[in-house]
C-alpha cells in the first residue's frame, strides 16, 4: 500500500518565475527507502519541501496516508507536520541550545505552547530523548551546545530530533552533503537501520549516486523538473544515469 502518493506536482518559487517541478508523480510504499537523484537545480529540494508544504506547490496533489496534504488549513498542516520528520543538509540545529534541548524540540508539535516556551517536557519525552541519543551514539554529549559538535555528530542530533516526532514518514534533504565520505556512509547506515527498525518509510534527496544505490531500494531521477527514471534500484542502468545527468542545469 502506498503511504505517499504524489500526482502531477508542479511548483515554482514565484507566480511569474520559471517552473521548477513540471508535473512529477510517484508513490512511496510502506517499507521504502526512496531516493531522489539528479543534477543540481533539477528540483530535488523543491520536491521534498513540497511534501510537507514548506513550499506551496502550484498544482497537483499529495496524499499522505490518504489525507490530501494540499487541502489542509494551517492548524491541520501543523498537526500533519509533526508526523513528518525532516533531516537537513545543513543540520538546522538550534546552535545556541544544548543537544538535549535540540532533541526535545522534536516534540514541539505535541506539547502546549506555554509548556514549550518554558521548556517543560514530560518525563516520557525526556526518557525517549535520552534513549534516542544513546541509540545514535551521543550519550556523552547530552549537555553540550549543538555548535560544539562535529558535522557527523550534529547530523546524529538531527536524526534523533526527527525521531522524537515519532514520524510516519522521514524526509531527508541531502543529509550527507556536508559530511565526508566515510561519515556519510555511517550516517546513511544509521538512518537506514533505524528506519527499518521503526518501520518508517524514507524519502531521501541525495546526489551521491553510489551511496543511493547502496542504501535505497527505489530511485527516481529528476532532470530539470521532469521525472526521467522511476524504479527499483537494481533496474537503474548506466544508460539511465547518463540520461539523468546528460543536461546539467546551473
Amino acid at each position: 500500500m502506498a503511504i505517499l502518493e504524489v500526482r502531477d506536482l508542479k511548483a515554482s518559487y514565484s507566480s511569474s518565475g520559471p517552473e521548477i517541478l513540471k508535473g512529477i508523480s510517484f508513490e512511496v510504499e510502506n517499507d521504502d527507502f526512496f531516493a531522489i537523484i539528479g543534477p543540481s537545480g533539477a528540483g530535488k529540494s523543491t520536491l521534498i519541501r513540497c511534501i510537507n508544504r514548506l513550499l506551496e506547490p502550484s498544482s497537483g496533489s499529495i496524499k499522505l496516508n490518504g489525507v490530501d496534504v494540499l487541502k489542509l488549513n494551517n492548524k491541520e498542516l501543523r498537526h500533519l507536520r509533526r508526523h513528518i520528520g525532516m533531516i537537513f543538509q545543513e543540520f538546522n540545529l538550534i546552535n545556541r541550545m544544548s543537544v538535549m534541548d535540540n532533541v526535545l524540540s522534536g516534540r514541539l508539535g505535541y506539547v502546549g505552547t506555554l509548556r514549550s516556551v518554558l521548556r517543560i517536557f514530560s518525563d516520557k519525552d525526556i526518557q525517549n530523548a535520552l534513549m534516542l541519543l544513546e541509540r545514535v551514539g551521543l550519550q556523552d554529549h547530552v549537555d553540550k551546545r549543538a555548535d560544539e559538535l562535529s558535522g557527523g555528530q550534529r547530523q546524529r542530533v538531527g536524526i534523533a530530533r526527527a525521531l522524537m516526532q515519532e514520524p510516519t514518514l522521514l524526509l531527508l534533504d541531502e543529509p550527507t552533503s556536508a559530511l565526508d565520505p566515510k561519515i556519510s556512509r555511517e550516517v546513511m547506515e544509521l538512518i537506514k537501520d533505524i528506519a527499518t527498525e521503526l518501520k518508517v518509510p524514507v524519502l531521501c534527496n541525495i546526489h551521491d549516486v553510489q551511496l543511493a544505490k547502496e542504501t535505497c531500494n527505489k530511485i527516481i531521477g529528476l532532470q530539470d523538473g521532469y521525472k526521467m527514471f522511476d524504479g527499483p534500484t537494481e533496474t537503474l542502468a548506466q544508460a539511465n544515469l547518463e540520461e539523468i545527468y546528460s543536461m546539467e542545469v546551473l
Binding site: 525532516m86 537537513f88 538550534i94 514541539l108 516556551v117
Partner: peptide, 26 residues
C-alpha cells in the same frame, strides 16, 4: 535553517519565534 526546521516539525508561530529566532538574536 533553524526556522525551517521548527516549521517542518509542526511548531506554531510562537514556537518558531522562541526556538528558531530568539536563540539566534538573544
Amino acid at each position: 535553517g533553524e526556522v525551517e526546521a521548527i516549521r517542518a516539525m509542526g511548531g506554531n508561530h510562537l514556537q518558531v519565534f522562541v526556538y528558531g529566532v530568539v536563540p539566534q538574536v538573544r
